[in-house]
Design a protein around this nucleic acid. Sequence first.
DNA 1: GAGCAACTATAGCCGCAGCAATATTCCCTG
DNA 2: CAGGGAATATTGCTGCGGCTATAGTTGCTC
Lengths: 169, 169
Amino acid sequence: MDHNVFDDPRITAIGLLFEASAGLSARFAAQFEEHGLSPVEFEVLMRLTRSPGHQLRMTDLAAQTSLSTSGVTRVVDRMERDGLLRRRACPSDRRSSYAVVTAAGLARLDETLPGHLQIIEQWFTGQLDPAALDSLLDGLRRVRDAVHPGATAGSTDPAPAHVPSAAGC
Amino acid sequence: MDHNVFDDPRITAIGLLFEASAGLSARFAAQFEEHGLSPVEFEVLMRLTRSPGHQLRMTDLAAQTSLSTSGVTRVVDRMERDGLLRRRACPSDRRSSYAVVTAAGLARLDETLPGHLQIIEQWFTGQLDPAALDSLLDGLRRVRDAVHPGATAGSTDPAPAHVPSAAGC
DNA sequence: GAGCAACTATAGCCGCAGCAATATTCCCTG
DNA sequence: CAGGGAATATTGCTGCGGCTATAGTTGCTC
């Protein structure tokens, strides 16, 4: 029990990261639900809204989220049924289709975002003084860049740097 | 586009936290799979093994993981079928039952842990010099303590402080 | 000691999401 | 321009896990 694995600083470190992350996720989910959104739906709304024309091809949307292409198909199904999104055929490539944010989708996002930002501030960024926060973010950025989830990532990147295949459309 | 929400420092911050966390999760999942474990199964194995007698009542196990009680029932079903765990009736309370780690379960954990620790070091703790790491962990601890996932948390706590109801057993 | 509320584990039902298979379309090569 | 390989979206199938209902057990109160 002297060099118990459970006391290993690495276990402690990863525990802190995951608990902080999970705790925030739970707060977010609760607030999203108040506005009739699931976490994935919010993420989809964010990704699409920040994209040019408030739209993205299904594949590209999948690449920018934590979802597979079939997962995207179903989320877009639900959100289209709820009027938040709309499918649009790609004129130049008849295999592709766009998911486009509707006015209702934009409104829903606008209605959800203030509370979301407030929660981030209350439970995360506001918990630390500016210097400590910078320090934390620097560390996270280092880790993020190292582990680079590839498709899962990109939230901070203004453009995915990929610009995969939205060329002809 | 001047005060675009997407460029809000809070969005950037939470993006970094989630991407780092998700990236590490993905690495972990891949390594767990090499040893025939899912992330939840690994978590269950860790929680039980660090508990006195390598066992925990189903309810307490649920409280210490990200699972509901019915979720625990099913995970334990699977792991019992695979020989990693074993159910044991609680002698003093016939409603309760224990999940106990078997020798095979311990062996599986021992076989999985070194690689797990190595991944943590390679992609997380080893990415930063000691001072920066301390800084990062301090920040995370602050956030963790604030958001305190309640049941979901506890990974770093040697004892859950609760010591819920394992009294009579 | 009978009744009742709280607790414990489980089973039914459901939605979600990944993988693999499929149909369609595109593009490149000969 | 014919044919084959790659890309795109969708669907079937599966496993996972939460919520709710249920059955059994406990302890408390009258």
